[in-house]
Simulated scan of single mutants.
Amino acid sequence: MDVKSGLFYVFSAVLLFSAFRVITARNPVHAVLFLVLTFFQAAMVWMLLKAEFLSIALVLVYVGAVMVLFLFVVMMMDINVDSIRHGFWKNFPLAAVVGVLIALEMAAVLMGGFRVIEEPHALAVAGNAAVEISNSKELGKLLYTQYLYPIEVAAAILLVAMIAAIALTLRQRKDSKYVSPSDQVRVKSKDRMVVHKMAATKPTLVEDLTNATDAETKV
């Protein structure tokens, strides 16, 4: 067994263990961290299969953005673990049936074996010189030539979804205070502060205090 095969088995074993811990960890934060480890191991397996673009995309998109967001949401929410486990045994039969079905389907695929194909050469001959082929470059050419229209449709759908999410979250509420940024820019100093002219204060004389005291005594 060569080094590549050994690394594949190591990454696969860690991936299976971390995926199992995702659904068995009692602490939600630990489950999210195990899921991050699962994505990293899957990225390493893709790297061994020379799918560098998919490997980097998995790390950047899922680990760098989605899972970090999930981690912060889980840490900020006060999750009651006991209430989550309340209906575990009630839904366990259905989950067991689905799990067994998926395991049987995977076993049917794996027992059939894989066709061994020759590894594509990483060098192409251009004239008399050998030119190295870039996996990411070839994938980019394929995406933006043959699959250009599906990419544009997916981009339009994601844009509509992003605009809809912004519109739903920025609804004006009665219990929230909102100030228009355009009004803040156009405001002037005289609109923020009003100066009232008042008479200057005068020192109180001792005679005035004595007269006021006598008047209160008579009353």
Rank of each mutant, 00 (worst) to 15 (best):
L54P: 02
K188R: 08
S12V: 01
Y62W: 07
P28E: 00
N211M: 13
E216Q: 10
V10L: 13
Q172F: 10
A199S: 14
N128V: 05
A51Q: 07
Q172V: 04
H86S: 10
P93W: 02
V3H: 11
R192L: 10
E119V: 08
M75W: 10
E119I: 05
K190N: 11
E207G: 05
D78M: 01
K50A: 06
A107K: 09
S18Y: 02
A31I: 04
V187N: 14
K141M: 03
A108Q: 03
R192I: 13
G99Q: 11
V98P: 03
G64Y: 09
S182M: 12
L69V: 13
V125M: 15
K202A: 12
H86I: 10
K177S: 09
V109H: 08
I79G: 05
L15S: 00
E207S: 11
V206Q: 04
A51S: 04
V153N: 03
I79F: 07
T201I: 12
M111W: 12
F40A: 01
E216P: 00
D175A: 11
S5N: 09
Y144T: 15
A13H: 11
F72K: 03
E52L: 05
A31Q: 00
A95W: 04
L33V: 09
L15N: 06
L58H: 11
V10C: 05
L205M: 09
A212C: 03
V116C: 03
A155R: 00
M111P: 01
A212L: 09
K141I: 02
M198V: 12
M77E: 10
R85T: 08
V10A: 11
E138F: 05
D2N: 15
I117L: 13
S55H: 00
A164C: 08
L16G: 03
A156I: 05
R186N: 13
R186S: 06
K177Y: 10
L143P: 02
V10F: 09
L54W: 05
V116Y: 04
V185F: 13
S134H: 02
M77S: 14
G87F: 09
A124P: 00
G64I: 08
F17K: 14
A108N: 04
N91A: 09
K202W: 04
A212D: 13
V14Q: 14
W89M: 13
L142D: 02
L48H: 02
L142A: 11
T204Q: 02
L54A: 15
Q172S: 07
T24P: 06
A215L: 11
V36N: 14
P203N: 15
R26I: 08
L159N: 00
G112I: 03
I133D: 00
D191R: 07
